[in-house]
Amino acid sequence: MSDFSDTLALSASGMKAQSMRLRHVSENIANADTPGFHRKIVSFEEVISRGIGTGKVQAGPIRLDQSELEQIFDPSHPLADGNGNYDGSNVDLVVEIADAREAQRSYEANLKMFDQARQMSSSLLQLLRR
């Protein structure tokens, strides 16, 4: 039964990591028009237990995208400098939507793996009862 619980824990860690990624992608999309906003990037790292890789993943430290911010010309904006420019954000909506789809599909794949392991363990218990 340990293999089944390991499989459930493995897929649950993937779902948790992808949900964290989706949360930050949503924040990026929500702040696409916020002046001076830097895009958040989520990375994943393997969970190590007693010096051995477990196969589980977790969201690593959140980093800010250091690419240049978009310069927007609007002399009437309160943040505009002497030339009439201010810093926009470095969020590209096309990239964020692609990241959101990838995170969603990865989450769904982990959910299917979780469900399959649950069904297999349930079937095994039914066989052992006979």
Rank of each mutant, 00 (worst) to 15 (best):
N85W: 12
V47F: 05
A103R: 01
R101I: 15
G82C: 00
I62A: 08
E102L: 15
E96N: 07
S89I: 00
D81K: 03
E46Y: 01
A103W: 04
I97C: 00
N83E: 12
V94D: 14
E45I: 04
N85L: 15
A80N: 01
V91K: 10
F44M: 10
D92S: 10
Q58I: 02
S106I: 02
R50N: 15
Q66W: 00
P75H: 04
D87H: 14
N85M: 15
I62T: 10
L79H: 06
A103H: 06
A100G: 13
L69I: 01
D99P: 04
D81V: 08
R105V: 09
G53L: 04
L64Y: 14
Y86Q: 07
K56M: 15
K112H: 07
R63N: 13
G55I: 02
L69M: 05
Y107N: 01
D92W: 00
E70Y: 05
A98E: 13
V57S: 06
R50S: 14
N110F: 04
Q71D: 11
G53V: 03
Q71R: 15
A98K: 00
K112T: 11
N110M: 08
G51M: 11
A59C: 07
P61G: 15
E70Q: 15
N110C: 10
S76I: 08
S49A: 07
A59M: 11
Q58W: 01
Q71S: 14
A109P: 05
S67T: 12
L64H: 14
I72N: 04
R101F: 12
I52H: 11
L79T: 01
G60A: 15
Q66V: 03
D87L: 12
P78R: 02
F73V: 05
Q104P: 02
P61K: 15
V94M: 07
G84L: 12
I52G: 01
K112Y: 00
G51N: 11
R105Y: 09
A103C: 09
V95T: 14
A103I: 03
Y107I: 05
I97L: 13
D87M: 13
E46W: 03
L69Y: 03
R105A: 09
I52D: 09
D81M: 06
I72T: 01
I48N: 05
A109G: 09
G51W: 09
S49D: 13
V94K: 04
D81L: 06
Y107D: 03
G88I: 01
H77I: 05
H77G: 06
